[in-house]
Amino acid sequence: MPTPDLNTLVVGDEVANAEHLITRDSLVRYAGASGDFNPIHYRDDIAEFVGLPGVLAHGMLTMGIAIQTVVDWAGDPSRVVDYQVRFTRPVVVDPNDGATLTVSAKAAVIEAENQRARIDVIATVDGRTVLGKAQAWVSFA
């Protein structure tokens, strides 16, 4: 994918979109990589015991998958100079079907003088937002 051009970017443009399947296997791999072995991320009985609707994806996994859509568009991870989200809804990962995270990224603010743009990230599962106020600043300098 070619490097995006700040001069052709327009506020409101959808710059990227993707769907990502999160499976129970994804959770195990993330737990191993992150060291987060909280059983709510892999044991249905524990999730149910603490009142959750099922096994949940790690918040940071969800956040990381969502920003990857912007990184792919930007062409270089070092271009993403700031990224912030609010976790608004947990991602329940079905043991058989997993959960599909749908990500859309749109240009929200363009600062030509600073050679950067704010990209708003919309992340949903089953049409329901799971990350609120997800915003990434991308540098074009």
Rank of each mutant, 00 (worst) to 15 (best):
M1N: 11
T3P: 00
T3M: 00
D5Y: 03
N7W: 01
L9W: 02
L9D: 04
G12E: 14
G12H: 11
A18W: 01
E19Y: 01
H20L: 02
I22W: 09
D25F: 04
S26F: 11
S26L: 10
L27C: 14
L27V: 14
A31N: 13
G32P: 06
A33C: 00
G35T: 11
I40H: 12
I40M: 13
I40L: 14
Y42E: 07
D44P: 03
D44A: 15
D45K: 08
I46M: 12
A47K: 10
A47M: 12
G51N: 12
G54I: 13
A57D: 13
A57E: 10
A57Q: 10
H58S: 07
H58F: 00
H58Q: 00
T62A: 03
M63P: 01
M63R: 02
Q68A: 02
V70A: 06
V71H: 05
V71F: 07
D72A: 15
D72G: 10
D72H: 11
G75E: 11
P77L: 05
P77S: 03
R79D: 09
V85H: 04
F87M: 01
F87G: 01
T88G: 10
V92C: 13
V93F: 08
N96S: 02
N96E: 15
N96Q: 13
D97W: 06
G98C: 15
G98Q: 15
T102L: 03
V103E: 00
V103C: 03
K106L: 09
A107T: 14
A107C: 15
V109R: 15
E111L: 08
E111G: 04
E113C: 03
N114M: 11
Q115Y: 05
R116T: 08
A117R: 01
R118H: 09
V121L: 13
I122V: 12
G127C: 10
R128L: 13
V130N: 02
L131Y: 00
L131G: 06
G132D: 06
A136V: 10
W137G: 05
S139M: 07
